[in-house]
Each structure stands twice: as structure tokens, then as C-alpha cells.
Design a protein around this nucleic acid. Structure first.
Lengths: 221, 221
DNA sequence: CTATCATTCAATTGATCTATTGATTCTTGA
DNA sequence: TCAAGAATCAATAGATCAATTGAATGATAG
């Protein structure tokens, strides 16, 4: 061994990252943060955790280098440390899907059946948006939509889908998207739209991946 | 929340993967396994762990889906579950390097100074090997070399480097490689060769990445 | 300066993880 | 069938981690 000490130090550091990814609550927080910066209470709200607990998990994430925080007024905003964190989570999901039978089963049983309709790849979609061929529907809650969305997207949170169907042209194809590849919102939306006769498909991946891929977005700053 | 149960189940499964990556010894085992299949006692030997401990870590890795095992005779061989596992580890290293100051410091202080010489990218190297322009030196132990190596590579384990210098043509450029991007063996080799006046450079990444990239290899067996 | 809100800290308990030890299973060769 | 090597299993003690609780900090509005 040329330098076991350095090697071990490096491995210990890498393991810190793994530890950060080893708790479901932290992974959920990372998924929310992939949407964009969020405050602590906001994150506590959507994840159903106590504020103190959320804060502690976020600090672990910060110490592991996955997220950063900045203070703005009396609240603290957390955000992913970089796009490579999104890539890391993608790699994690891909391996899980590929090699954990339980994951494959969950996805197959609960998500895939609704998705016999193949998802639309990002790059193809951009061209069709510019041609005005499709109606892009963002089914996330309004707050997330406001923080950033696809160009020309129509925001219809899932709960309002039935009541706002009239806003969607039945002649044009509908592309729904939400938070990410395993976000069920878009699946649900496509499912319900198809039930009503719309030609609906799901966008492959979600908003964070779209943005990470360098595609144009509309942001409210 | 459309289906919190499924979501939570998925996150829990993803967390299993993170847990597998949360201990330095397991990461080290994964790095060795990235070289190719290995027996338990072999892994225990190179990692310095007891056989029982090694076995238990390997079983955790297997349960997390990262590695597979098969019995051959009286010994059990473990191997990575797929190339996506290598990608996952790459993503992990990249994020660590980017966002953990300690890692960047370690790499900068101990590895980078020896590497002012820029590493050779994989794709460029292949062409130069075929032209016969370079001497490719594999500095890993002989056992690992035998399991698989770059086409035409010369195996000179680091300890034997000084005694076998005569086998290297001083006129041709030397490209050294070993186990991976953070393997210190190749750094050491380049450093020592340069001390003696050779034109030596390091291959970017190591044998596992080369093989994963679909490049040609020579395998025994 | 005080009251209030958002966040963090500190301390506790119960749960999970790790390395070691010694016994056990499984396979091969005699 | 028996003995030996390889790997796993089972049980233990020490360490680390997670969620809760209540107190403490930091920033803003009045």
C-alpha cells in the first residue's frame, strides 16, 4: 500500500456522502430541494416532519456538502449544492430500479401500468413546444410552479384538474410533468386525462432534470 | 399527496442503497470489486479486514443490490451488479470532490501536485496504443493484471518499478494506470518515472472505467 | 427595547450499526 | 466417511443515529 492513510481518509469522506443518502427523510428533502430553494418550515410542511427534525436533517445534508443554506430576513433557505447532486440522485435511482427487485416491483405495479404510453424525451419536447404543437401542463402546486417552470406551461395542480378541464384544448396533445421521474402527480394527471379522452402523455423526468439539462425555463425572480 | 405510501416505500428502498455506501470499508470493497470478481479471502487480504467482517460487509452490499455473488468450487466470488454501479460511484466521487472541502484538500495536497502533468483521456489513448506510440504500464499487482488489462499493457507492479526499469524504452512516452481515478499507484509510478527522466503520464481514470467505457481489453480466462 | 416568528441548539431515550468472537455449514480431496 | 479450507452464521458489547422535547438564538416589527 502506497498511502493507506490518504486512501482511508478519502473513503471516509465519501462515506459521509453515503450516510447523508441513507435516510428516506433526507432523500425526500433532497427531492423537494431539487425543485429549487426552500425554507425550513416549507420543507417541514410538505414532508410532514417536525420543524426541529427537518432542521437537523437539513444540517446533516449541509455538512455532507449536498446542500447549502443562506439566510434571507428571518428565514433560512436551503438549496442543492449543484447540478451534480441531481446527477447523483439520478444514478442512485437508476441503480435501485435496476438491481433492487422491490423497487422494480413498486414501479411496475403502481406507476408503469399507467405509463404504457411512452414518456416524451426532453429534447424532442422542446421542438414541439416551439412549434406550438402541444399543451404543456405543470401539475405541481402553484408555489413550485411560480418558482420556475417550462416555457409556456399551464399550471394546473392535480386537485384542480377536473374543474379546469375546459382550459385544455381537446384537439392538441397534452404533455404533463411534475417533480421528477418517480413523481406520481404526472402519472395521475395523464391517467385522468386519458380517461376523459384527451391525448395525454407524460414528460420523461421532471422539472429539475429539464432545468439541469440546460433547457430554457421561465422563472419568477 | 397522491400516494404517500408508495413514495415512502420507494424512498426507503433508495435509502438502503445510501446505507450501503455509508461505510468506508464497503466503499473500499466496491473499489476492489470494480476491478473484477474477487473471492472473500482475497478481499479481506487487500482491505485488511477480518474474513468474517469482510463477509458481513459483502452481504450487506449484496442485499442492497450493488454486488452479486456466485459459488465456484469451495469459494464464493463477488462482483459488481452492473456498470451502473461504477457510474454511481463516479457520481459520488465527483460530488465529494466538488462540495466537500476536505476531499478537495486531500486530492490537491497529495495527488494533484504529482499530476501537474495532465492525464490522458481514454479515447485519445486508444488511438495512440494502436499506432504503437506509447508504452502502457499497468502498475497493479500481478493478480489483478491477470484478471484483465489494457491491450498490450506491460505489468509492472509498483514495488518492482525500480528493478524493471530496463524493460521500458526511455524514448517512448509511458502511460501508467491502475485501479481508478483516485488510485495512488499510478500517481506514484508517474512521479518516480519522471524523476528518472522518462516522459510519463497518467491515464485518466483506471481499468474499471476503461472497461466500462466499452474499450477493448485482454482478459485471461 | 420588547414581542414575535423562524430556526437552531442541547439533552434524552430507544433503536440501529459495527467489529469481534467462536461455532456452524458447505465443498473438496484423501 | 473424514479432515481441512472457505465462507457464513449467531451472539455480544460498544458506538452511532434518530425523533422528541424544551430552551436558546437571531432577525424583524412595533
Amino acid at each position: 500500500m502506497s498511502s493507506p492513510t490518504i486512501k482511508h481518509q478519502l473513503l471516509t469522506q465519501f462515506a459521509r456522502l453515503g450516510k447523508a443518502l441513507s435516510h428516506p427523510n433526507r432523500l425526500e428533502l433532497l427531492e423537494f430541494l431539487a425543485q429549487g430553494p426552500r425554507g425550513v418550515d416549507e420543507l417541514a410542511g410538505v414532508s410532514g416532519l417536525s420543524v426541529a427534525n427537518t432542521s437537523q436533517h437539513l444540517q446533516q445534508l449541509r455538512q455532507s456538502g449536498l446542500v447549502e443554506s443562506r439566510r434571507q430576513g428571518q428565514r433560512v433557505y436551503y438549496q442543492l449544492a449543484g447540478d451534480d447532486v441531481v446527477s447523483l440522485m439520478d444514478a442512485l435511482r437508476r441503480v435501485a430500479r435496476q438491481h433492487l427487485p422491490d423497487v422494480d416491483m413498486l414501479v411496475r405495479d403502481h406507476l408503469d401500468p399507467r405509463d404504457a404510453m411512452e414518456p416524451v424525451p426532453l429534447d424532442q419536447l422542446l421542438a414541439r413546444i416551439r412549434n406550438g404543437e402541444v399543451t404543456v401542463v405543470d401539475v405541481r402546486p402553484e408555489a413550485e410552479f411560480r418558482a420556475g417552470h417550462l416555457p409556456g406551461a399551464l399550471n394546473i395542480p392535480l386537485e384542480e384538474l377536473e374543474t379546469r378541464l375546459t382550459q385544455i384544448d381537446p384537439e392538441r396533445e397534452v404533455i404533463a410533468y411534475c417533480r421528477g421521474p418517480y413523481c406520481v402527480l404526472a402519472y395521475d394527471a395523464v391517467y385522468r386525462l386519458r380517461e376523459r379522452g384527451y391525448r395525454a402523455r407524460r414528460m420523461e423526468d421532471g422539472y429539475p432534470e429539464w432545468k439541469t439539462a440546460g433547457m430554457p425555463v421561465e422563472e419568477t425572480g
